[in-house]
Measured scan of single mutants.
Amino acid sequence: HHHHHGSGALAALHAEGPLAGLPVTRSDARVLIFNEWEERKKSDPWLRLDMSDKAIFRRYPHLR
């Protein structure tokens, strides 16, 4: 159930192989992290948004 927010940013994801479903670039990863943060913020208003490279690598090590 993907609803768009204002920016309408869509992340490019790997379609197949071992990385299927994972973001292709760091900016794609940022979109995913932001979208998930927006969702989680509803139940956790104090949740901090962390889109640093460090956060991205921790989450998606293949982007190193």
Rank of each mutant, 00 (worst) to 15 (best):
W46H: 09
G8S: 13
H3N: 07
D50A: 03
R30M: 13
L32V: 08
R26Q: 07
E39Q: 15
L19T: 04
M51G: 02
A11L: 06
R48Y: 05
D53K: 08
P18W: 04
A12R: 11
R40S: 11
L49C: 08
L47W: 12
M51K: 04
H5L: 15
P61E: 05
H2M: 13
L49Y: 06
E36K: 04
K54M: 10
K42G: 07
F57A: 09
T25Y: 06
S43A: 12
R59F: 06
H4G: 10
R48K: 12
L32R: 02
A12L: 14
H3G: 13
Y60W: 13
E36H: 06
A29G: 03
L63N: 00
H3E: 07
A20Q: 14
I56A: 01
D50L: 03
L49H: 02
E38M: 15
A9T: 15
H62I: 00
D44W: 10
G21K: 02
A12K: 13
V31K: 09
T25W: 04
F57Q: 08
D28P: 01
G21C: 07
H2Q: 11
R58L: 12
L13V: 13
S52I: 01
R40W: 05
H2P: 13
H1T: 09
S52W: 01
R26H: 10
K41Y: 10
R48G: 07
L19Q: 05
S52E: 02
P61L: 01
H5E: 10
M51P: 02
D50F: 03
L19V: 05
D28T: 02
S52H: 03
S43T: 15
E39A: 08
A11G: 06
A55Q: 09
K41N: 15
P18A: 09
E16T: 09
D28N: 02
F34D: 01
N35W: 14
P61M: 02
V31M: 14
F34K: 07
G8V: 06
I56Q: 00
D44I: 05
Y60T: 00
R26L: 14
R40H: 15
D50P: 01
G21V: 04
D50S: 04
V24C: 07
W37Q: 02
L13A: 05
H3W: 11
H4E: 10
L22A: 04
G8I: 13
R59P: 01
L47K: 07
S7C: 10
W37V: 02
G6E: 12
A15L: 13
A20T: 12
R26V: 12
A20F: 12
E36C: 04
H3Q: 10
A29T: 00
P45W: 06
F34I: 09
A9P: 11
R40Y: 09
G8E: 12
D50Q: 04
V31W: 13
P23Q: 04
E36G: 03
R26E: 10
L49W: 03
H2W: 10
I56N: 01
E38Y: 13
A11Y: 08
S52D: 03
E16S: 10
S7P: 09
E39W: 05
A20Y: 11
G17Q: 02
A11T: 03
Y60L: 01
A55V: 11
D53V: 10
R58W: 11
K54V: 07
A29N: 00
F57R: 03
A20C: 09
P23S: 01
A12Y: 11
T25S: 08
A15Y: 11
A9R: 03
E39T: 09
A55C: 05
L49M: 05
H5R: 15
S27R: 14
A55K: 06
N35P: 00
L10M: 12
R30H: 05
L13Y: 05
R26T: 13
H62C: 01
R30L: 08
L22V: 03
A55P: 01
R40D: 08
G6P: 15
A9F: 14
V31I: 14
H3I: 08
A11Q: 02
R58T: 14
A11F: 07
V24F: 04
P45Q: 10
A12P: 03
R26W: 12
R58P: 01
A11D: 03
I33Q: 02
R59I: 10
I56G: 00
L19K: 05
H4T: 11
D28H: 04
V31F: 11
K41P: 01
A11W: 03
N35Q: 15
E16P: 05
W37K: 00
S27K: 15
H1A: 15
E16N: 11
